[in-house]
Write a protein that binds this DNA or RNA. Structure first.
Lengths: 254, 254
DNA sequence: CGCGTCATTGAAATACTTCAACGACCGTGG
DNA sequence: CCACGGTCGTTGAAGTATTTCAATGACGCG
């Protein structure tokens, strides 16, 4: 396998103002960029193996990275997703017990460990950013715990679509209620979604079909989805079925 | 309500060598202890409200603190548990979106925010400890995601008991296989356990009953439990039923 | 075209929930 | 002392959301 590394060109970076770089002042960015490099990964490629001490840090420029843990029985479970702008890696030598795998084609911007740690020791802002980054990850993980512990299959699927939509601002038009329609590409296969959501792939498929039948979403070619009624999706997540959809299943379960 | 604050007496602290203090050198401990204070909380008391920016940090000396999030529909979900030696609070101004409530009677050792942050800026070790602490929390949260996404009710209950047991080293005797029996006190009510494990209280109760019927555990007065066959518990978590227990349900589900 | 992977859909099985009743424990007040 | 009401835990029976098993269809690729 050929390692395609290219020098970092920050001016063209889609996440220059987000993530770590967004927290840096100009000359800090310049310093960091001189030692940074870009690399492409195709879907399925392993970025970081479980238990391994990561050599460096990186930021996700485009694509989606899945974080997974392998279980004693041999199966895997996705425990997190990194979208564009997110940061991967643990400063200060803490090794992560999850592996990182490209879910889609991915472009990463790598920074040498030493450069980041030096920057952190020089700048309180950087140090705080790194700290807050982990805190935010923890926050997200806790939200996921809520999802897995409390939500029905329908709510989980709706949550996932909303989550992806919130990071994927390709607005289309307006629906009847004035809420904007959103076009998005699901970054995961049904199997992976099931894995992430704690369901089976069949259940995920069925729930998507139900949402489609009700006109909440429309599914296009490959993995593209159009959210036709964002409000309805939100209502599903926050409570249960929207009042209009009268059939079956009621409110706050469990 | 009376605020019972007492000066910190480190020499009597049960977690002196664990947690943050374990990472400090002697004169750092001395410095910190001069501004630290102890406080008791009875079960159910709120230690830190959701969304509030915490005034300080604290370490759990005895007892168990539950971290919970409130859902849009009004219910709550426990997203984490802090046992003796664990550290509560986010340095550097990141607010936590979870509330902390005493699950049992609890003794906390509070440190002023300024003292901890000063210590962190002076000592790279302290800074790293704080960082690794959050990383570890994240790691634990991810493990819980695996539990909630992949495990059956039986496995969840078994996991919980093992988790408590691992922090509760009150060994008793030996069982036939040479594995040590462990006596422990469940820190949560059935309702809370159900909340934590993403089940209903009835299911939790039934699973505990089943484990008792099989002789894997014995339940005593109030919430005390004796783990009679630690190996069997572990086998349940890691795979499924131990081979001896032949009835129903098979291997790796979902 | 045929083959593999991925998604959809149906029917049967089941783990878990829901609803409901009951018993144990415990402090309160008669 | 015992009756009383509260919380908490247990157990049973019925219901249901989700899984499991199985078959079929859509798509991309050599």
């Amino acid at each position: 396998m050929i390692m395609r590394r290219t020098r970092a060109l920050c001016s063209e970076c889609p996440v220059l103002n987000k993530g770590l770089c967004g927290a840096l002042c100009e000359h800090e960015v310049a310093k960091l960029s001189s030692s940074a490099w870009h690399r492409q990964y195709s879907a399925g490629q392993v970025i970081h193996a479980e238990g391994e001490k990561p050599a460096s840090f990186c930021a996700v420029m485009t694509g989606v990275v899945k974080l997974s843990k392998s279980l004693p029985n041999g199966t895997q479970k996705i425990v997190g997703l990194l979208l564009a702008g997110d940061f991967l890696g643990r400063p200060f030598g803490a090794q992560s017990h999850a592996s990182a795998v490209a879910a889609t084609n991915v472009r990463l911007c790598w920074f040498p460990r030493a450069a980041v740690e030096r920057l952190a020791s020089e700048s309180r802002d950087v140090e705080r950013w790194l700290f807050n980054n982990v805190s935010d990850e923890l926050e997200k993980a806790q939200d996921w715990i809520v999802l897995l512990g409390r939500m029905t299959a329908e709510q989980r699927v709706a949550s996932f679509i909303l989550h992806v939509a919130s990071r994927n601002e390709v607005q289309n038009g307006e629906d009847g209620d004035g809420a904007k329609e959103v076009l998005l590409e699901l970054p995961l296969s049904r199997t992976e979604m099931a894995d992430y959501l704690g369901l089976t792939l069949e259940t995920v498929s069925r729930q998507i079909a139900r949402l489609r039948q009700r006109g909440v979403i429309a599914v296009g070619a490959s993995r593209s989805v159009i959210v036709r009624k964002p409000d309805a999706l939100l209502a599903i997540v926050e409570f249960a079925l929207a009042p209009e959809a009268s059939n079956s299943v009621g409110g706050a379960k469990r």
